[in-house]
Design a protein around this nucleic acid. Structure first.
Length: 274
DNA sequence: ATGCCGTCTCTCCTTACATCA
DNA sequence: ATTGATGTAAGGAGAGACGGC
């Protein structure tokens, strides 16, 4: 109806319901809405927004498949040159294959008190039984083969288009749910990394503070520095050469194996700590 | 083999309606 | 009774696959 139309076409699309409203950062506007060619209000839209016109649908059980429509649909299905099913998209609906369904007409060619070409929006609610069967079928396979679609539609007394749309919307809902789950997971990762980063920053600051005030640890026992001999790969336990080294890396591994002639200040007997 | 065209079906976005608090 | 939020069926655009010519 018209109450949701803001006239700007800038409504945001999917709302991912991420707990953190700032994650992920939303686009400032919907590009699709901006570039989509605005469908200027057609006569049909004017009709749709007319309360009088809508009231004509009240009391009509749109979940019931009118027999005449069913007949028409079957005819279309058989007569379709390229398809044995009547999978009618919105564009193809304009050929009159599905119009007027809610008002019981067939192909929209019935005489219409409301002015002929009524592109009426038929809003219906599937029954619980229909929804349950569709749900069960969806659990087995999220897409339907044409024959499955037709048989399911027949079983549920729905149009194939309705079954098709239901599965499309159901896939969209599944994807949206999955996106929400992914969003939640990424947010947890983000929070963990933030916490880890904060912890490391704090640690770095503490180490810098130590470095700037050497007297604080002057009288402390020097930390042990482990140094690996490049030739024999034994680890030497050394006092730090300077106080500043105490806050550096305490285990110094030298990845490059040196030649035997390398100057190694410690004999191998002193480096049996390994 | 290639290109064009029509059809079908999909995703994505949007709209309109039903329902509920 | 009204209203806003929410859920969902359906419309429409665009894209890709496919078959026929």
């Amino acid at each position: 109806m018209g109450e949701r139309e803001d006239g700007l076409g800038l409504t945001l699309g999917l709302s991912l319901k991420c707990p953190d409203q700032n994650f992920p950062p939303p686009l400032p506007f919907n590009l699709h809405s901006i570039f989509q060619t605005p469908k200027l209000s057609s006569l049909a839209d004017a009709f749709q927004s007319s309360p009088d016109a809508r009231s004509n649908l009240r009391g009509i059980d749109v979940n019931r498949r009118p027999s005449r429509v069913a007949e028409c649909e079957d005819e279309v299905g058989v007569s379709s040159p390229n398809s044995t099913i009547s999978s009618v998209s919105g564009k193809r609906e304009e050929n009159g294959t599905e119009r007027g369904w809610a008002t019981g007409g067939c192909g929209g060619e019935e005489e219409d008190d409301d002015g002929g070409d009524t592109a009426e929006r038929k809003k219906l609610r599937l029954s619980k039984e229909q929804a349950a069967v569709l749900e069960e079928t969806f659990k087995e396979h999220s897409t339907l083969k044409p024959k499955q679609k037709v048989s399911l539609a027949n079983q549920l007394n729905l149009r194939t288009r309705q079954v098709e749309v239901w599965f499309q919307n159901r896939r969209a809902r599944t994807k949206l749910k999955q996106t929400e789950v992914d969003c939640e997971y990424l947010k947890r990762c983000y929070d963990n990394l933030t916490e880890e980063n904060r912890r490391l920053q704090k640690e770095a600051n503490e180490l810098r503070a130590l470095k700037l005030s050497p007297q604080t640890y002057m009288h402390m026992n020097p930390p042990t520095t482990l140094t690996m001999c490049p030739s024999c790969e034994r680890v030497a336990v050394l006092p730090p050469p300077s106080p500043a080294a105490a806050i550096g890396i305490t285990r110094h591994l030298m990845p490059v194996r040196s030649t035997p002639g390398n100057a190694w200040p410690f004999n191998s007997n002193n480096s049996q700590a390994a």
